[in-house]
Amino acid sequence: MYGWIWRQLPGPTAVKVLEATVLVLGVIALLMFVVFPWVEPKLPFNNVTTTP
């Protein structure tokens, strides 16, 4: 999978490294700002209130 992605990246090695870094950062940002905030309330470990 990663090998295939690496081969798809255009340009010489230095450019490929840069492109790969941007891809990784993009995925992390997507997780942090979109996926995790959406998943979090559905998980049970941060309930702090009591409900009668």
Binding site: M1, Y2, I28, L31, M32, F36, V39
Partner: peptide
């Protein structure tokens, strides 16, 4: 590779919960 990636995502989620 997919399994390792999922493991890293879970670790990242812990970092998100506790720090971010």
């Amino acid at each position: 590779e997919v399994l390792i990636t999922l493991g890293l995502v879970v670790l990242l989620f812990v970092v998100y919960e506790v720090y971010v």
